[in-house]
């Protein structure tokens, strides 16, 4: 009796699947790097934030659940640093954007020496943040600072003023140092947005008799809206995480007058060696930054496409 033997032939995978497999293979190294450098640290930080990890007691790492987070909500120092952070963010972002816009509008005009002015405006941005902090620390010094020297020479003050040792002035000084360095970047970004505004629109508005203010409000501003919001998004995220300037200029003082939340995180982690609490605070900053970014991105979407 003859037996028919059916030999199964391998069925080749469809072309799209082969392509997908090759694609995954190519993406895999990058994905591995991403997991190792981003995903793992994020998850590890979450694990740390749920434990009492203190280098003062390295052998003891009990699970504390949300205690590290809840302790902050009950801490006056935390709320005080939240308040200082809000003041710093609102003042810095508003001033940086407004001054940056003014500079961009000036640079958008054609005049002699425009190229030179453009180069000069860029200088602060070339200064590293830590150097910027050190420079302003010298400028603000109450004994030999150049700001006091200039004001005194002009007869505007009769004695050298304390700036970084005064709680209110210290925050203003911090904001000023931040704005000075960030304005060039904002000006460049907004200048790029201004360059993209069609000239015809401006000409048409001019022909309709609109003055400069009306043309700016009704023609220029709506057309640079996207660039404007991007600047706001970037600067807000930057200010929320600003640490280096505070570290160099005030170390959160005097008292806790300039203790913003990023400084508090650093202090808790590296000075007090409380890595668990530090990680919890870093997570809170990340959540806040994410919330702000989402809000801005919603604003960025065209009106018809905004999620309700």
């Amino acid at each position: 009796m003859g037996v028919d033997v059916l030999v199964a032939r391998p069925v080749p995978a469809p072309a799209w699947r082969r392509e997908a497999a090759t694609g995954h293979l190519f993406v895999a190294p990058a994905l591995l790097v991403l997991v190792a450098l981003d995903v793992y640290p994020i998850l590890y930080a979450l694990w740390v934030s749920l434990h009492r990890v203190s280098l003062k007691y390295p052998g003891d790492r009990p699970f504390v659940g949300l205690r590290n987070y809840l302790d902050y909500f009950a801490s006056d120092y935390f709320w005080s640093s939240v308040q200082h952070t809000l003041v710093f963010v609102v003042a810095s972002v508003s001033l940086t954007t407004l001054v940056g816009l003014a500079v961009a509008l000036v640079l958008h005009q054609s005049f002699r020496g425009q190229a030179l002015l453009f180069a000069v405006v860029l200088i602060p941005w070339a200064v590293p943040s830590v150097v910027n902090g050190l420079m302003w620390k010298w400028i603000y010094n109450s004994s030999y600072g150049s700001l006091n020297g200039v004001l005194w020479s002009l007869g505007l003050i009769d004695r050298y003023q304390v700036i970084l040792g005064d709680p209110h002035r210290a925050m203003a000084a911090l904001v000023n140092a931040f704005v000075w360095r960030e304005v060039p970047l904002v000006a460049i970004l907004l200048l790029t947005a201004l360059k993209a505004v069609p000239e015809d629109l401006d000409k048409a508005a001019r022909a309709d008799g609109a003055n400069a203010v009306r043309r700016f409000l009704h023609v220029t501003l709506p057309n640079i809206r996207t660039g404007f919001l991007l600047v706001l998004l970037y600067e807000t995220m930057l200010t929320l995480r600003t640490f280096d300037l505070v570290y160099v200029l005030t170390e959160g003082g005097p008292g806790d007058a300039t203790s913003v939340i990023s400084w508090y995180t650093y202090s808790e982690t590296f000075r007090n060696l409380n890595f668990g609490r530090g990680a919890a605070l870093a997570y809170l900053i990340a959540v806040a930054t994410f919330a702000v970014a989402t809000w801005y991105l919603r604003l960025l979407a065209p009106p018809g496409k905004r999620a309700r």
Partner: peptide
Amino acid sequence: PGALETGEIAGLK
């Protein structure tokens, strides 16, 4: 008046 912003080196100077 600047005591609270004066560090050791600044004080020395």
